[in-house]
Nucleic acid binder design. Sequence first.
DNA 1: GTGCATCATAGTGTCGACATATTGAAGATC
DNA 2: GATCTTCAATATGTCGACACTATGATGCAC
Lengths: 255, 255
Amino acid sequence: MRADSEGPIEAMEAGAAARDLDLKSLARAQALVTRIVAERHDRPSLVARIASETGAEIIEGIRRPGDDLNSVELSKRYRTSRTPIREALMLLEKEGLVDVPPRKRPRVASPALAEIREIYRARAVLFEMIAADVAAAITPEGLQALREHFAAMEAAHRAGDLNGFVWANVDFYELNTQLASNRTVKRILDSLLLRTARLRRLSLSQPGRMARSFDDHARLIKAYEDGDPQLAAALIRSNHINALAALEGYLLKAG
Amino acid sequence: MRADSEGPIEAMEAGAAARDLDLKSLARAQALVTRIVAERHDRPSLVARIASETGAEIIEGIRRPGDDLNSVELSKRYRTSRTPIREALMLLEKEGLVDVPPRKRPRVASPALAEIREIYRARAVLFEMIAADVAAAITPEGLQALREHFAAMEAAHRAGDLNGFVWANVDFYELNTQLASNRTVKRILDSLLLRTARLRRLSLSQPGRMARSFDDHARLIKAYEDGDPQLAAALIRSNHINALAALEGYLLKAG
DNA sequence: GTGCATCATAGTGTCGACATATTGAAGATC
DNA sequence: GATCTTCAATATGTCGACACTATGATGCAC
């Protein structure tokens, strides 16, 4: 996040500000997808670029659930053959962002509410483990890094910046999975994160959710400071239950 | 497992018997990979066949960790172009059976001990959840089906049939994930299962492991009968810890 | 108008070919 | 003899083409 992009926003008209925020959020989404989807593709690869951009567009809602993602259209857009497109779509299918039915056109995945519940439960259970591990073996440096991400969450919260809060939150969680140094679980959680990334801001946009989440994370850091794995795990569980409940409230209301 | 294949074995020489068992185990492995890897490819697809056969060969140790899986050789073997081969290898990479580094030849994955530990921990945590769910909402029919798989484990145990026990065990676990009706977690556990399928028989070949595992499962069924989610989860945890310990013992001994 | 068969359109799965990158063995250098 | 270059052999990434299949618009029967 570039500091200079904060200043001029208030002077702009609302539409321009919203567009600017979306672009920042889109860039963050793209970076996230790149990290997760193209983990090993160290050098810039065509497939990785297509997957990252398309994945970010899905997360940011530019492509809606159910939208067509046919490989001919995409190959025209990227001026490539269909081979790398197909590969990119398979990468995104692996992360649950895209459905690729045999012989039919690929589509943006549209998870049912039941599946979202399942994802949140799986995330909760795995994150409890991660949080307990972190609490049991936290270093001063790790704690400091976590506090910095938490400060970013606090700043976004005070500014009422939903997208900023969401992404600071993503950073916070990502650091957690790193600190637990369990790459297998990190990969699973990353995948589950991508699937719900689009829904995250909906959940946090529910009244009081951001404040509550902020509070939960403050207590989580305290549990880390105290080296209390059980409390850390319980806070993660509670946070996920609340986030899911808020999301369900939104989805049921919105149809 | 065909019943008539049990009878004649004792009359055969040891080599032939071993080969017969391997073929049965290979077929089981292939069915497992097909179910997991080609979940959606309802109709027989070329890619699904290549992925299933190659995956089964990896699980059965016909292809060893580190072995080359270059697409030219495979395309000759299957008399296809390299396109479906590449796709099949990507499917297997998704399940962790194959490494596909960019611009380099694909290889059979060779997980380090640290990664195996991570997998067992993740499996344990997710399976605790599954087992608790099953214990909380088991039906008489579900219980009956579980007892039948358990009976197959018992038969294999008494017969000293390691491969038979391993596959009955896989069936038992698969039924658990179905009964919990959480497809998201089932998919994750299936993937983790494939990664460790090759190691499973090593773990269970350690002295006393089969008996202990058999005992754990008897107690798990009892916990289900009593509708005791916490005990079920604890039994799963204990079983995974013991299995991992046995595996570590084997791997450290074998180098 | 509504429901069903027909068919042109458009997309997918697979192929063989080409440019480029990796590999590993032969020779050069120390 | 060991290590570093060089270079041919081999594999990968991408391409455009083709056969086959899904799609959805059109006409037809009612």
